[in-house]
């Protein structure tokens, strides 16, 4: 049964909130219950931004959480803040650029995705967040590519629909870039 509680965290401007929105919209297209709860407030201006996304087959209780199945981490502050908030056996995905102290927990499935580097090399900085999302969906295909496409169509204004193929390309690139850093299997 799908009940995925995700935190996405990084700098304001990295596309954290929109990545969450696309994920939530795709979940909706997949017939799931969804919630998208941003951190809103003065800290958003130039500071850190994070969003909690829940995808579930059941009615969602709290959109506000303190522990998560998955953390998608895009800067050091967010890693420091959320590494310990991932449930044991959960998933932690991070972009190594700008990370000087990588994750240390051994009870998580840790993955890295070199999205910043790849986006810069290919002049794709605008779809940086889609590269990260592609990495996540490779690890946990909670929604399909078709649902993402449908979600993009719904969440982007029509004048931007010509950008959808580039976004899909970003997703695929992310799927090819993601690397497992450690393996954890919950004790049975």
């Amino acid at each position: 049964m799908i009940n995925e509680e995700i935190i996405i965290a990084g700098f304001g401007g990295q596309g954290v909130l929109s990545m969450g929105k696309i994920l939530a919209y795709s979940g909706l297209m997949n017939g799931l219950e969804v919630s998208w709860m941003p951190s809103y407030g003065p800290e958003m201006r130039g500071g850190t931004a994070n969003v909690t996304v829940i995808l579930s087959e059941e009615r969602i209780s709290s959109p506000i959480l303190t522990s998560y199945d998955t953390a998608i981490i895009l800067n050091q502050q967010s890693l420091d803040k959320f590494e310990n908030a991932v449930k044991p056996g959960g998933i932690l995905i991070y972009d190594p650029s700008g990370i000087s102290n990588p994750p240390t927990r051994h009870d998580l499935n840790v993955f890295s995705v070199e999205a910043t580097k790849a986006a810069n090399e290919r002049n794709m900085s605008k779809i940086f967040n889609m590269i990260v999302l592609g990495g996540y969906l490779k690890v946990n295909p909670v929604v399909s590519l078709e649902h993402i496409e449908a979600g993009l169509k719904k969440s982007l204004p029509e004048r931007h629909h010509n950008l959808i193929p580039a976004n899909i390309e970003g997703l695929k690139l992310g799927a090819s870039l993601i690397q497992r850093e450690n393996f954890y299997k919950a004790a049975c």
């Binding site: 929105k21 939530a24 709860m37 809103y40 959109p63």
Partner: peptide
């Protein structure tokens, strides 16, 4: 409240 106002749901 601010949370219900700012969050997105179906």
């Amino acid at each position: 409240d601010g949370a219900i106002g700012q969050m997105m749901e179906k």
